[in-house]
Simulated assay, not measured.
Amino acid sequence: MRPLTDAAGRQADPISDTPERAELRAELRRLIAATSPAAEVLRLDEQERFDDKLHEALRRLGVHAVGGHPDHGGIGDIRDQTAVIEELAAGPTSMAVHMVVQYMITHILGTNGSPEQREEWLDRLHTGAAKVSFALSEPAGGTDIARVMRTTARREGDHWLLSGQKTWISGALGADALVVLARTSPAEGSSVDGVTMFLVPAGSPGLQVRELPTVAVHGLDTCEVFFDDVAVPESAVVGAVGAGFRQVVATLNRERINAAAGAIGAASGALDAAVEYARGRAAFGSTLGSFQAVQHRLVDGALAIESARSLLARAAAVEAAGGRADLLSSMAKIAASEAAVKVTQDGMEILGGAGFSREFPMQRWFRDVRLWVFAPLANDMVRNYLGERLLELPRSF
């Protein structure tokens, strides 16, 4: 179920879609249908392969530059990014996850990178000629990563030496570089202090990547990354020494907004498929779609999607205007991810045996959307944050 439209087929909500953004959506739909139709997405998902053909088509379309630094070819803003991600997630969901990571990296480097880093990397990132992975989570900590971070970086002469391990890192196998968070000094007053961000070229001596077997998002590798005294120059520091975690926190609104867009897109694709199946599936002298219980499930799914989309539109509009979108982006992330879980669960049950078959896409959406319940932050922790910041209740963690 794509965004609601008016009688002329344009986007009905002026907050979320201008005519230009509506045309971007339409062009993406045409490109995806031609380059990565449902059968191709399923084939690559089964083979656990990245869609290089689609990536090249997206590169030619210029979507990697969306929301990027204007001095380096960036165009549009976070609202355009959400349109790109939503359209991708409705089909080749793994590519949507890839773009969430790339948009996060371009924002980090565009905001915190040195002139030399921006010159070297942003042009290539904006044209899709380079891929950069983001390495934060570790085996001992995901949400609590700043306090328990074991990856360290120490100065030796004019270089830094990185040692440690990161895990659940998306796209590390195919990356040209990794943005890595490492502790460079003991925490002083707060566990978020003393963490520094580094830009580490792939293939650096001492850096090893191992792909992890995951249940979903098979079109994008998820990896462990090991650092054994990986040497990087002083120029590899992104932003200020000791301020890396605070720099990352400043990007979380955009990551939550884009994650919500991905969940909404996947839920929309799954709902469309469930409605189409219900219309055509003969049962008891009629069709599944004629049964009230089935209709109610489908309608409730549409309500959940549109409710989440409204929150997403508000959050993205505030973020684009330079306002503080942390509460809205948090609510949008919860609403979107849980709408996606509901829609795909109902979709599996409506399709019955067809849902259980890997020849139908419902099972892929059912698996893929689970990612956004705990990434980029577990929904329980997001609720804790909202309890404290929105409702002004005592901190619960």
Rank of each mutant, 00 (worst) to 15 (best):
Arg155Asp: 05
Met197Asp: 07
Ala336Ser: 13
Arg309Val: 03
Gly142Cys: 06
Asp77Glu: 12
Met362Val: 04
Val238Phe: 03
Gly355Lys: 07
Arg358His: 11
Glu188Met: 07
Leu122Lys: 13
Val225Ile: 12
Gly280Ala: 10
Gly164Glu: 01
Ala315Gly: 11
Asp80Cys: 04
Arg155Ser: 11
Ala283Val: 05
Ile108His: 14
Ala313Val: 00
Arg324Phe: 03
Ser357His: 06
Asp52Trp: 14
Asp300Lys: 11
Ser170Gly: 10
Leu122His: 03
Asp158Leu: 07
Glu276Phe: 03
Ala339Phe: 06
Val225Ser: 08
Val225Asp: 13
Pro14Gln: 15
Leu271Cys: 09
Glu138Phe: 00
Arg150Gly: 02
Gln295Arg: 11
Glu138Lys: 00
Asp368Glu: 08
Asp6Ala: 00
Gly76Cys: 10
Arg155Gly: 04
Arg309Ser: 15
Arg210His: 14
Val382Gln: 14
Ala89Asn: 11
Met362Ile: 07
Trp365Gly: 05
Arg281Glu: 12
Glu86Lys: 02
Gly353Lys: 10
Arg370Asn: 11
Ser94Phe: 06
Leu390Thr: 01
Ala96Tyr: 04
Ala89Gly: 03
Gly174Leu: 03
Gln81Gly: 06
Leu303Val: 07
Pro3Gly: 12
Ile32Lys: 05
Arg124Pro: 06
Glu224Asp: 15
Ala7Asp: 13
His69Asp: 15
Ala231Trp: 00
Gly128His: 02
Gln81Phe: 03
Val148Asp: 05
Gly269Trp: 09
Glu359Ser: 12
Glu138Asn: 00
Asp380Gln: 10
Arg43Gln: 01
Glu116Lys: 04
Gly280His: 12
Val299Gln: 14
Pro70Val: 10
Leu311Met: 09
Phe374Glu: 07
Thr111Glu: 15
Glu319Val: 04
Ala140Met: 02
Arg25Asn: 09
Thr184Ile: 04
Arg395Leu: 09
Ala89Glu: 07
Gly285Asn: 08
Val275Pro: 08
Leu44Ile: 01
Asp144Cys: 00
Cys223Met: 06
Ala267Met: 03
Leu207Tyr: 01
Leu24Lys: 12
Arg210Thr: 07
Arg389Met: 11
Asp346Gly: 04
Ala8Ser: 13
Arg256Asn: 13
Gly174Thr: 06
Ala130Val: 06
Glu120Val: 01
Ser185Phe: 05
Phe366Cys: 06
Ala39Val: 10
Leu4Val: 05
Ile169Gly: 02
Arg21Leu: 12
Ala336Asn: 04
Ala130His: 04
Glu120Tyr: 07
Val41Lys: 12
Leu311Asn: 14
Gly9Pro: 08
Thr143Val: 08
Gly242Asp: 14
Trp372Thr: 08
His218Arg: 14
His126Lys: 10
Ile108Phe: 15
Glu156His: 11
Gly262Leu: 13
Leu312Cys: 04
Ala153Val: 00
Gly113His: 06
Ile75Gly: 06
Gly387Tyr: 14
Arg358Ala: 05
Thr167Cys: 06
Asp380Cys: 05
His64Ser: 13
Ser204Lys: 10
Ala282Asn: 08
Arg383Ala: 10
Arg309Asn: 03
Gly219Phe: 02
Leu252Pro: 05
Asp368Ile: 02
Gly265Leu: 05
Met1Leu: 12
Lys333Ile: 00
Leu109Pro: 10
Pro233Gln: 12
Ala135Glu: 03
Asp346Lys: 00
Leu220His: 09
Glu86Trp: 09
His72Thr: 06
Ala354Tyr: 12
Arg367Gln: 10
Trp168His: 01
Arg124Met: 03
Ala26Val: 01
